[in-house]
Design a protein around this nucleic acid. Structure first.
Lengths: 240, 240
DNA sequence: CCAAAAGTGTTGGTCGTACACCCATGC
DNA sequence: GCATGGGTGTACGACCAACACTTTTGG
């Protein structure tokens, strides 16, 4: 006979830190809380996990609640369990990092829900700096609960993983047709500093083209013009 | 008025993957389960989180239950939430990685509790291989619950962090008096492959001695003899 | 007892890769 | 103005060779 488990109630939630790159800037999707606690503050998306859900599936479900069905990059970040992180009780949060192409979000945001907003995300030196087009400037402290801490953790993780994983590609609107400069723009937005084009090109060509994971699909000379400057080559990510 | 939370009962536990290096081999501390489910199988240490505990403090408390009070390296690994991971119900586990100097464990193990055992840990290619001095050979599948998965995750994380963190030092019996070869032994045990002594020395001297985080405390010529071969220099980790 | 061998610690070099930084060229 | 390519210097790891100092071995 196996014993039954007994434990005082602990609530378990998932929180999603949804990121995208728009206009060369890293942006974080936040929602304004409409009720206490922390009413009126900006927060990550979160929900309680159902008994029939894993943390993964709960996070996916939460994302799909607001986005058209589509596969997005989702990765577990860290689990936060400070006693005072939620005044409603003992709430443990499993935080996830989501990476979205800007085009995915465009539709959702153009609906004009004032409770949803994209904030530019910077973290030079001490803390976070969040900005919105209407001039609002926030720090990590201004976010609801411990969400400032979560965002800091996520940003560090993202920056680290940029170099040795394929995570940057998930920011692209179309992985089957993009310029290297677009990819470079993602790197620059995430790292929040300029990247040397020459080295970047060499690195990507060596890491992806030489291994067949990426191919040039259109030669610049045959392409239609796309704005100023020398036409760029189009690349396509191959799936395997 | 803030709403009360309601959620069907989900249990939250911490599980600890405790590692040490002994005789040039990476070893994992496991305990044999004395009751169902998975009775008789080897498992990580785990316990339910109390309402007054954070995951961190719960993990620390669990470690101290079996070890003399002392600070050990402890780091959150990942949170596992598969629905079928525990037949007793909906149990989510926050897994922690603990790094212990062999000398810390020696006392506990010499007590002779047959429910505790150190297994050598290898992971070449496909899966895990766990070995014990009595000839027992296990794979990840043989462990209780999903603990095989947890151990794989932890090992990958440890190997990655070895290079850009100070985690290796936590395996040392005495961080105030050690040989570089001992530290190199830790690297070789964790990575499970030989490490070039020349580069290792250069890297450590550059990374730690030149920055003042490590100092040579005894010149070989003035040292008492310590076995065969050329006498080695003693180093000491400075705290800051 | 002494000399050679074997084991361990330490230092040095070369080579290829990768990145920072700069400059040149094509369109 | 932007995309692309080339070149130099530096840092670091893989791999190799030599040397320093000790214990062990065996005549």
């Amino acid at each position: 006979m196996q014993e039954a488990l007994t434990q005082e109630q602990i609530f378990v939630t998932v929180d999603i830190m949804a990121l995208t790159v728009q206009d060369g800037e890293l942006k974080l999707l936040l929602s304004r809380r409409v009720r206490p606690p922390d009413q009126g503050r900006w927060a990550l998306f979160g929900k309680l996990i159902g008994v029939e859900e894993t943390a993964e599936t709960a996070a996916k479900a939460l994302l799909e609640e607001m986005l058209p069905v589509r596969e997005v990059f989702l990765e577990q970040l860290y689990t936060f369990s400070d006693r005072e992180r939620d005044p409603r009780g003992r709430v443990i949060s499993i935080a996830y990092l989501a990476v979205l192409p800007w085009k995915e979000l465009q539709g959702v945001l153009s609906a004009g829900d004032p409770k949803l907003r994209l904030f530019t995300l910077h973290a030079d030196g001490g803390g976070l700096r969040l900005g919105s087009p209407d001039g609002t400037e926030l720090t990590g402290e201004d976010l609801a609960f411990d969400h400032g801490t979560i965002v800091e953790t996520g940003l560090l993780r993202l920056r680290g993983k940029l170099h040795y994983t394929d995570i940057a590609f998930h920011f692209l609107n179309d992985t089957r047709s993009f310029f290297l400069s677009e990819l470079q723009g993602v790197f620059e937005a995430v790292l929040d500093k300029p990247v040397d084009g020459s080295n970047f090109r060499r690195a990507m060509l060596g890491r992806y083209v030489d291994t067949g994971r990426m191919v040039q699909v259109e030669h610049p000379s045959t392409a239609r013009r796309r704005g100023r400057g020398r036409p760029a080559a189009l690349y396509c990510l191959t799936e395997d």
